[in-house]
Design a protein around this nucleic acid. Sequence first.
DNA 1: GTCTATAGGTAGATAGAC
DNA 2: GTCTATCTACCTATAGAC
Lengths: 198, 198
Amino acid sequence: MNNLAHDHNSRRMELVLAAASLFRDQGYERTTVRDLGHAVGLQSGSLFYHFRSKEEILVAVMALGITRTTEQLESALARADTLNAKLAALFHVHLHSLLGENQAALEVMLYEWRSVSEAARPGLIVLRDRYEALWQGVLDEAAAAGLVRSDTRLLRRTLLGSLHWTVQWFHPDGDMSVDELAERMLALVLREENTATR
Amino acid sequence: MNNLAHDHNSRRMELVLAAASLFRDQGYERTTVRDLGHAVGLQSGSLFYHFRSKEEILVAVMALGITRTTEQLESALARADTLNAKLAALFHVHLHSLLGENQAALEVMLYEWRSVSEAARPGLIVLRDRYEALWQGVLDEAAAAGLVRSDTRLLRRTLLGSLHWTVQWFHPDGDMSVDELAERMLALVLREENTATR
DNA sequence: GTCTATAGGTAGATAGAC
DNA sequence: GTCTATCTACCTATAGAC
Protein backbone atom coordinates (compact mmCIF):
# COMPACT_ATOMS: atom_id res chain seq x y z
CA MET A 1 0.00 0.00 0.00
CA ASN A 2 0.88 3.62 -0.17
CA ASN A 3 2.34 5.12 2.96
CA LEU A 4 1.54 8.69 1.92
CA ALA A 5 -1.96 8.42 3.16
CA HIS A 6 -2.39 7.12 6.64
CA ASP A 7 -1.16 4.70 9.10
CA HIS A 8 -4.18 4.03 11.21
CA ASN A 9 -2.31 5.52 14.07
CA SER A 10 -5.20 7.49 15.49
CA ARG A 11 -3.28 10.53 16.72
CA ARG A 12 -1.86 11.04 13.30
CA MET A 13 -5.25 10.66 11.67
CA GLU A 14 -6.87 13.05 14.12
CA LEU A 15 -4.26 15.60 13.19
CA VAL A 16 -4.70 15.08 9.47
CA LEU A 17 -8.45 15.57 9.72
CA ALA A 18 -8.09 18.75 11.76
CA ALA A 19 -5.46 20.01 9.33
CA ALA A 20 -7.76 19.35 6.39
CA SER A 21 -10.41 21.68 7.80
CA LEU A 22 -7.94 24.38 8.70
CA PHE A 23 -6.15 24.24 5.37
CA ARG A 24 -9.44 24.41 3.53
CA ASP A 25 -10.76 27.32 5.55
CA GLN A 26 -7.64 29.45 5.94
CA GLY A 27 -5.29 28.06 3.33
CA TYR A 28 -2.11 26.13 4.02
CA GLU A 29 0.23 29.11 4.26
CA ARG A 30 -1.96 31.06 6.66
CA THR A 31 -2.41 28.08 8.94
CA THR A 32 0.39 27.94 11.51
CA VAL A 33 1.67 24.93 13.35
CA ARG A 34 0.28 26.63 16.45
CA ASP A 35 -3.19 26.55 14.88
CA LEU A 36 -2.75 22.88 14.11
CA GLY A 37 -1.59 22.07 17.60
CA HIS A 38 -4.42 24.02 19.17
CA ALA A 39 -6.98 22.16 17.06
CA VAL A 40 -5.95 18.82 18.55
CA GLY A 41 -4.92 20.01 22.01
CA LEU A 42 -1.18 19.86 21.54
CA GLN A 43 1.62 22.37 21.77
CA SER A 44 3.09 23.26 18.43
CA GLY A 45 6.37 21.53 19.14
CA SER A 46 4.64 18.24 19.80
CA LEU A 47 3.41 18.01 16.22
CA PHE A 48 6.93 17.29 15.10
CA TYR A 49 6.93 14.00 16.92
CA HIS A 50 4.22 12.85 14.49
CA PHE A 51 5.33 14.63 11.32
CA ARG A 52 8.74 15.75 10.23
CA SER A 53 7.46 19.02 8.80
CA LYS A 54 4.36 21.06 8.17
CA GLU A 55 4.48 20.12 4.53
CA GLU A 56 4.35 16.44 5.41
CA ILE A 57 0.99 17.15 7.02
CA LEU A 58 -0.23 18.82 3.85
CA VAL A 59 0.80 15.84 1.77
CA ALA A 60 -0.93 13.47 4.16
CA VAL A 61 -4.14 15.51 3.92
CA MET A 62 -4.06 15.43 0.15
CA ALA A 63 -3.27 11.74 -0.04
CA LEU A 64 -6.15 11.01 2.30
CA GLY A 65 -8.54 13.11 0.25
CA ILE A 66 -7.79 11.51 -3.06
CA THR A 67 -7.42 7.91 -1.87
CA ARG A 68 -10.67 8.00 0.08
CA THR A 69 -12.52 9.40 -2.89
CA THR A 70 -10.99 6.79 -5.16
CA GLU A 71 -12.01 4.00 -2.81
CA GLN A 72 -15.55 5.32 -2.61
CA LEU A 73 -15.77 5.56 -6.37
CA GLU A 74 -14.41 2.05 -6.85
CA SER A 75 -16.97 0.59 -4.54
CA ALA A 76 -19.82 2.65 -6.03
CA LEU A 77 -18.86 1.52 -9.53
CA ALA A 78 -18.73 -2.08 -8.38
CA ARG A 79 -22.29 -1.75 -7.12
CA ALA A 80 -23.59 -0.03 -10.28
CA ASP A 81 -25.30 -2.45 -12.65
CA THR A 82 -25.97 -0.18 -15.63
CA LEU A 83 -23.85 2.30 -17.52
CA ASN A 84 -26.18 5.09 -16.53
CA ALA A 85 -25.72 4.11 -12.91
CA LYS A 86 -21.98 4.25 -13.36
CA LEU A 87 -22.17 7.73 -14.83
CA ALA A 88 -24.34 8.85 -11.95
CA ALA A 89 -21.84 7.36 -9.50
CA LEU A 90 -19.06 9.57 -10.88
CA PHE A 91 -21.02 12.68 -10.06
CA HIS A 92 -22.48 11.59 -6.75
CA VAL A 93 -19.25 10.30 -5.26
CA HIS A 94 -17.24 13.32 -6.36
CA LEU A 95 -19.71 15.86 -5.08
CA HIS A 96 -20.27 14.10 -1.78
CA SER A 97 -16.54 13.87 -1.26
CA LEU A 98 -16.12 17.55 -2.03
CA LEU A 99 -19.20 19.02 -0.40
CA GLY A 100 -20.20 16.50 2.23
CA GLU A 101 -19.37 16.62 5.89
CA ASN A 102 -15.76 16.46 7.01
CA GLN A 103 -14.48 15.99 3.52
CA ALA A 104 -12.18 18.98 3.41
CA ALA A 105 -9.25 16.82 2.36
CA LEU A 106 -10.14 16.56 -1.31
CA GLU A 107 -10.70 20.29 -1.56
CA VAL A 108 -7.23 20.86 -0.13
CA MET A 109 -5.83 18.56 -2.79
CA LEU A 110 -7.45 20.68 -5.48
CA TYR A 111 -6.68 24.14 -4.20
CA GLU A 112 -3.34 23.97 -2.38
CA TRP A 113 -1.32 22.21 -5.03
CA ARG A 114 1.10 25.11 -5.37
CA SER A 115 2.27 24.64 -1.80
CA VAL A 116 3.42 21.08 -2.46
CA SER A 117 7.16 20.81 -3.05
CA GLU A 118 8.42 19.34 -6.29
CA ALA A 119 9.73 16.37 -4.35
CA ALA A 120 6.32 15.42 -3.02
CA ARG A 121 4.32 15.88 -6.21
CA PRO A 122 4.99 12.62 -8.08
CA GLY A 123 3.50 10.46 -5.34
CA LEU A 124 0.33 12.51 -5.29
CA ILE A 125 0.09 12.59 -9.06
CA VAL A 126 0.04 8.80 -9.11
CA LEU A 127 -2.96 8.85 -6.80
CA ARG A 128 -4.73 11.51 -8.82
CA ASP A 129 -4.14 9.64 -12.09
CA ARG A 130 -5.64 6.50 -10.62
CA TYR A 131 -8.78 8.41 -9.77
CA GLU A 132 -9.01 10.07 -13.15
CA ALA A 133 -8.48 6.73 -14.88
CA LEU A 134 -11.71 5.51 -13.29
CA TRP A 135 -13.47 8.50 -14.76
CA GLN A 136 -11.92 7.99 -18.15
CA GLY A 137 -12.95 4.35 -18.25
CA VAL A 138 -16.59 5.08 -17.52
CA LEU A 139 -16.72 7.99 -19.95
CA ASP A 140 -15.21 5.88 -22.73
CA GLU A 141 -17.79 3.17 -22.16
CA ALA A 142 -20.56 5.76 -22.09
CA ALA A 143 -19.35 7.38 -25.30
CA ALA A 144 -19.19 4.00 -27.03
CA ALA A 145 -22.79 3.43 -26.00
CA GLY A 146 -23.79 6.86 -27.30
CA LEU A 147 -24.68 8.27 -23.90
CA VAL A 148 -22.23 11.17 -23.95
CA ARG A 149 -20.19 13.05 -26.53
CA SER A 150 -17.22 11.25 -27.98
CA ASP A 151 -14.53 13.78 -27.04
CA THR A 152 -14.02 11.98 -23.76
CA ARG A 153 -10.61 13.27 -22.74
CA LEU A 154 -11.71 16.86 -22.97
CA LEU A 155 -15.04 15.88 -21.50
CA ARG A 156 -13.33 14.40 -18.46
CA ARG A 157 -11.35 17.57 -17.82
CA THR A 158 -14.37 19.74 -18.42
CA LEU A 159 -16.57 17.77 -16.07
CA LEU A 160 -13.99 17.55 -13.32
CA GLY A 161 -13.44 21.30 -13.60
CA SER A 162 -17.17 21.91 -13.24
CA LEU A 163 -17.37 19.67 -10.21
CA HIS A 164 -14.28 21.11 -8.54
CA TRP A 165 -15.68 24.60 -8.90
CA THR A 166 -18.86 23.77 -6.99
CA VAL A 167 -17.04 24.39 -3.72
CA GLN A 168 -16.91 28.05 -4.67
CA TRP A 169 -20.64 28.55 -4.95
CA PHE A 170 -22.62 25.60 -3.59
CA HIS A 171 -24.00 25.84 -0.06
CA PRO A 172 -25.02 22.43 1.31
CA ASP A 173 -27.52 24.10 3.64
CA GLY A 174 -29.30 25.83 0.77
CA ASP A 175 -32.39 24.64 -1.08
CA MET A 176 -30.56 22.19 -3.35
CA SER A 177 -29.19 18.93 -1.98
CA VAL A 178 -25.89 17.44 -3.06
CA ASP A 179 -27.73 14.57 -4.72
CA GLU A 180 -29.99 16.93 -6.63
CA LEU A 181 -26.97 18.91 -7.76
CA ALA A 182 -25.34 15.72 -9.00
CA GLU A 183 -28.45 14.77 -10.98
CA ARG A 184 -28.79 18.18 -12.54
CA MET A 185 -25.13 18.35 -13.52
CA LEU A 186 -25.32 14.89 -15.03
CA ALA A 187 -28.42 15.89 -16.99
CA LEU A 188 -26.48 18.74 -18.57
CA VAL A 189 -23.99 16.35 -20.08
CA LEU A 190 -26.10 13.41 -21.23
CA ARG A 191 -26.86 13.40 -24.94
CA GLU A 192 -30.49 14.31 -25.31
CA GLU A 193 -31.83 11.27 -27.14
CA ASN A 194 -30.81 9.34 -24.04
CA THR A 195 -32.11 11.57 -21.31
CA ALA A 196 -35.66 10.24 -21.59
CA THR A 197 -34.63 6.61 -21.25
CA ARG A 198 -32.69 6.90 -18.02
CA MET B 1 -15.32 54.73 -12.36
CA ASN B 2 -14.00 52.17 -9.96
CA ASN B 3 -10.80 53.05 -8.20
CA LEU B 4 -10.06 49.47 -7.21
CA ALA B 5 -8.50 48.74 -10.51
CA HIS B 6 -5.98 51.20 -11.73
CA ASP B 7 -5.10 54.77 -11.85
CA HIS B 8 -3.09 54.99 -15.01
CA ASN B 9 -0.18 55.95 -12.89
CA SER B 10 2.38 53.82 -14.69
CA ARG B 11 4.52 52.86 -11.72
CA ARG B 12 1.51 51.49 -9.95
CA MET B 13 0.41 49.57 -13.01
CA GLU B 14 3.88 48.15 -13.57
CA LEU B 15 3.80 46.87 -10.03
CA VAL B 16 0.36 45.35 -10.37
CA LEU B 17 1.37 43.46 -13.52
CA ALA B 18 4.53 42.12 -11.90
CA ALA B 19 2.54 41.15 -8.83
CA ALA B 20 0.00 39.30 -10.96
CA SER B 21 2.68 37.01 -12.36
CA LEU B 22 4.31 36.41 -9.01
CA PHE B 23 1.03 35.73 -7.24
CA ARG B 24 -0.01 33.33 -9.96
CA ASP B 25 3.27 31.45 -9.98
CA GLN B 26 4.07 31.33 -6.27
CA GLY B 27 0.81 32.20 -4.61
CA TYR B 28 0.04 35.38 -2.71
CA GLU B 29 1.22 34.19 0.70
CA ARG B 30 4.54 32.85 -0.54
CA THR B 31 5.31 36.03 -2.43
CA THR B 32 7.10 38.53 -0.19
CA VAL B 33 7.16 42.27 -0.52
CA ARG B 34 10.88 41.83 -1.21
CA ASP B 35 10.02 39.64 -4.21
CA LEU B 36 7.62 42.30 -5.45
CA GLY B 37 10.16 45.07 -5.06
CA HIS B 38 12.84 43.05 -6.79
CA ALA B 39 10.55 42.40 -9.77
CA VAL B 40 10.21 46.11 -10.47
CA GLY B 41 13.64 47.25 -9.29
CA LEU B 42 12.59 48.79 -6.00
CA GLN B 43 13.49 48.15 -2.40
CA SER B 44 10.71 46.56 -0.41
CA GLY B 45 10.09 49.65 1.66
CA SER B 46 9.46 51.76 -1.43
CA LEU B 47 6.38 49.73 -2.32
CA PHE B 48 4.53 51.27 0.55
CA TYR B 49 4.68 54.67 -1.05
CA HIS B 50 2.42 53.25 -3.80
CA PHE B 51 0.28 50.87 -1.79
CA ARG B 52 -0.71 50.95 1.84
CA SER B 53 -0.33 47.21 2.28
CA LYS B 54 0.48 44.01 0.47
CA GLU B 55 -3.18 43.11 0.42
CA GLU B 56 -4.00 46.32 -1.41
CA ILE B 57 -1.74 45.06 -4.20
CA LEU B 58 -3.61 41.77 -4.30
CA VAL B 59 -6.94 43.54 -4.58
CA ALA B 60 -5.61 45.75 -7.36
CA VAL B 61 -4.43 42.68 -9.28
CA MET B 62 -7.82 41.03 -8.98
CA ALA B 63 -9.74 44.13 -9.93
CA LEU B 64 -7.56 44.54 -12.99
CA GLY B 65 -8.07 40.93 -14.03
CA ILE B 66 -11.82 40.96 -13.84
CA THR B 67 -12.40 44.44 -15.24
CA ARG B 68 -10.13 43.85 -18.23
CA THR B 69 -11.86 40.59 -19.01
CA THR B 70 -15.25 42.23 -18.68
CA GLU B 71 -14.24 45.03 -21.04
CA GLN B 72 -12.93 42.55 -23.58
CA LEU B 73 -16.12 40.52 -23.41
CA GLU B 74 -18.30 43.60 -23.76
CA SER B 75 -16.50 44.68 -26.88
CA ALA B 76 -16.47 41.16 -28.35
CA LEU B 77 -20.21 40.83 -27.75
CA ALA B 78 -20.82 44.19 -29.37
CA ARG B 79 -18.99 42.96 -32.46
CA ALA B 80 -20.84 39.61 -32.59
CA ASP B 81 -23.72 39.61 -35.03
CA THR B 82 -25.25 36.19 -34.39
CA LEU B 83 -26.15 34.34 -31.24
CA ASN B 84 -23.69 31.62 -32.11
CA ALA B 85 -20.98 34.26 -32.40
CA LYS B 86 -21.89 35.59 -28.97
CA LEU B 87 -21.64 32.13 -27.46
CA ALA B 88 -18.27 31.65 -29.08
CA ALA B 89 -17.14 35.03 -27.73
CA LEU B 90 -17.83 33.91 -24.16
CA PHE B 91 -15.44 31.01 -24.52
CA HIS B 92 -12.76 32.75 -26.55
CA VAL B 93 -12.51 35.85 -24.39
CA HIS B 94 -12.47 33.90 -21.16
CA LEU B 95 -9.83 31.43 -22.27
CA HIS B 96 -7.60 34.08 -23.81
CA SER B 97 -7.83 36.13 -20.66
CA LEU B 98 -6.96 33.13 -18.55
CA LEU B 99 -4.38 31.38 -20.72
CA GLY B 100 -3.02 34.12 -22.96
CA GLU B 101 0.17 36.07 -22.48
CA ASN B 102 0.58 38.25 -19.43
CA GLN B 103 -2.91 37.63 -18.25
CA ALA B 104 -2.11 36.28 -14.83
CA ALA B 105 -4.44 38.74 -13.13
CA LEU B 106 -7.66 36.84 -13.76
CA GLU B 107 -6.15 33.60 -12.54
CA VAL B 108 -5.16 35.32 -9.31
CA MET B 109 -8.75 36.49 -8.92
CA LEU B 110 -9.94 32.90 -9.19
CA TYR B 111 -7.40 31.14 -7.04
CA GLU B 112 -6.38 33.57 -4.29
CA TRP B 113 -9.81 34.57 -3.10
CA ARG B 114 -9.21 33.22 0.39
CA SER B 115 -6.44 35.74 0.96
CA VAL B 116 -8.77 38.69 0.42
CA SER B 117 -10.01 40.24 3.66
CA GLU B 118 -13.71 40.43 4.33
CA ALA B 119 -13.50 44.19 4.02
CA ALA B 120 -12.23 44.06 0.47
CA ARG B 121 -14.52 41.37 -0.87
CA PRO B 122 -17.71 43.31 -1.61
CA GLY B 123 -16.02 45.62 -4.11
CA LEU B 124 -14.59 42.68 -6.02
CA ILE B 125 -17.85 40.77 -5.91
CA VAL B 126 -19.56 43.66 -7.68
CA LEU B 127 -17.02 43.39 -10.49
CA ARG B 128 -17.38 39.62 -10.71
CA ASP B 129 -21.17 39.82 -10.79
CA ARG B 130 -21.02 42.29 -13.66
CA TYR B 131 -18.94 39.82 -15.63
CA GLU B 132 -21.19 36.88 -14.84
CA ALA B 133 -24.26 38.90 -15.78
CA LEU B 134 -22.87 39.16 -19.31
CA TRP B 135 -22.60 35.38 -19.41
CA GLN B 136 -26.06 34.90 -18.01
CA GLY B 137 -27.60 37.22 -20.60
CA VAL B 138 -26.07 35.39 -23.53
CA LEU B 139 -26.91 31.97 -22.13
CA ASP B 140 -30.51 32.97 -21.56
CA GLU B 141 -30.81 34.19 -25.13
CA ALA B 142 -29.20 31.01 -26.40
CA ALA B 143 -31.51 28.80 -24.36
CA ALA B 144 -34.54 30.69 -25.63
CA ALA B 145 -33.32 30.02 -29.16
CA GLY B 146 -32.82 26.34 -28.39
CA LEU B 147 -29.05 26.41 -28.76
CA VAL B 148 -28.19 25.24 -25.26
CA ARG B 149 -29.96 23.50 -22.40
CA SER B 150 -32.49 25.52 -20.49
CA ASP B 151 -30.99 25.19 -17.02
CA THR B 152 -28.93 28.32 -17.64
CA ARG B 153 -28.00 29.31 -14.12
CA LEU B 154 -26.46 25.94 -13.41
CA LEU B 155 -25.07 25.90 -16.92
CA ARG B 156 -23.29 29.21 -16.31
CA ARG B 157 -21.64 27.93 -13.14
CA THR B 158 -20.75 24.65 -14.77
CA LEU B 159 -19.19 26.27 -17.80
CA LEU B 160 -17.25 28.84 -15.82
CA GLY B 161 -15.94 26.07 -13.59
CA SER B 162 -14.79 24.12 -16.63
CA LEU B 163 -13.05 27.14 -18.06
CA HIS B 164 -11.41 28.17 -14.79
CA TRP B 165 -9.97 24.70 -14.41
CA THR B 166 -8.16 24.82 -17.74
CA VAL B 167 -5.28 26.66 -16.09
CA GLN B 168 -4.53 23.45 -14.23
CA TRP B 169 -3.97 21.29 -17.28
CA PHE B 170 -3.77 23.32 -20.48
CA HIS B 171 -0.33 24.16 -21.86
CA PRO B 172 -0.45 26.98 -24.41
CA ASP B 173 2.72 25.68 -26.05
CA GLY B 174 1.20 22.23 -26.62
CA ASP B 175 -0.48 20.94 -29.77
CA MET B 176 -3.84 22.58 -29.10
CA SER B 177 -4.27 26.34 -29.48
CA VAL B 178 -6.39 28.44 -27.17
CA ASP B 179 -8.85 29.08 -29.99
CA GLU B 180 -9.14 25.40 -30.76
CA LEU B 181 -9.74 24.66 -27.09
CA ALA B 182 -12.49 27.28 -27.02
CA GLU B 183 -14.18 25.73 -30.06
CA ARG B 184 -14.02 22.22 -28.67
CA MET B 185 -15.36 23.23 -25.30
CA LEU B 186 -18.19 25.13 -26.95
CA ALA B 187 -19.01 22.09 -29.08
CA LEU B 188 -19.45 20.02 -25.95
CA VAL B 189 -22.22 22.27 -24.71
CA LEU B 190 -24.20 23.08 -27.87
CA ARG B 191 -27.38 21.04 -28.28
CA GLU B 192 -26.74 18.59 -31.06
CA GLU B 193 -29.49 19.50 -33.50
CA ASN B 194 -27.74 22.87 -33.71
CA THR B 195 -24.14 21.85 -34.04
CA ALA B 196 -24.41 21.17 -37.77
CA THR B 197 -25.82 24.59 -38.59
CA ARG B 198 -23.14 26.68 -36.94
C1' DG C 1 4.31 11.29 23.69
C1' DT C 2 4.00 15.79 25.28
C1' DC C 3 5.86 19.65 27.54
C1' DT C 4 8.64 24.21 27.94
C1' DA C 5 11.77 27.12 26.03
C1' DT C 6 13.94 29.02 22.43
C1' DA C 7 16.91 29.08 18.32
C1' DG C 8 17.26 31.11 13.86
C1' DG C 9 15.11 33.13 10.28
C1' DT C 10 11.97 36.08 7.76
C1' DA C 11 7.68 38.49 7.37
C1' DG C 12 5.11 43.21 6.63
C1' DA C 13 5.49 47.74 7.61
C1' DT C 14 7.53 52.35 9.32
C1' DA C 15 10.86 56.42 9.88
C1' DG C 16 13.67 59.66 8.32
C1' DA C 17 17.51 60.93 5.08
C1' DC C 18 18.16 62.26 0.44
C1' DG D 1 9.76 58.75 -5.08
C1' DT D 2 13.25 55.90 -3.49
C1' DC D 3 16.73 54.46 -0.24
C1' DT D 4 18.68 52.56 4.14
C1' DA D 5 17.89 50.90 8.39
C1' DT D 6 15.21 48.79 11.47
C1' DC D 7 11.07 47.60 14.50
C1' DT D 8 8.00 44.24 16.04
C1' DA D 9 5.90 40.18 15.33
C1' DC D 10 5.58 35.74 14.05
C1' DC D 11 7.09 31.67 11.65
C1' DT D 12 8.94 26.49 11.50
C1' DA D 13 11.60 23.52 13.75
C1' DT D 14 14.72 21.71 17.51
C1' DA D 15 16.55 20.40 22.28
C1' DG D 16 16.12 18.43 26.34
C1' DA D 17 13.22 17.71 30.62
C1' DC D 18 9.52 14.90 32.24
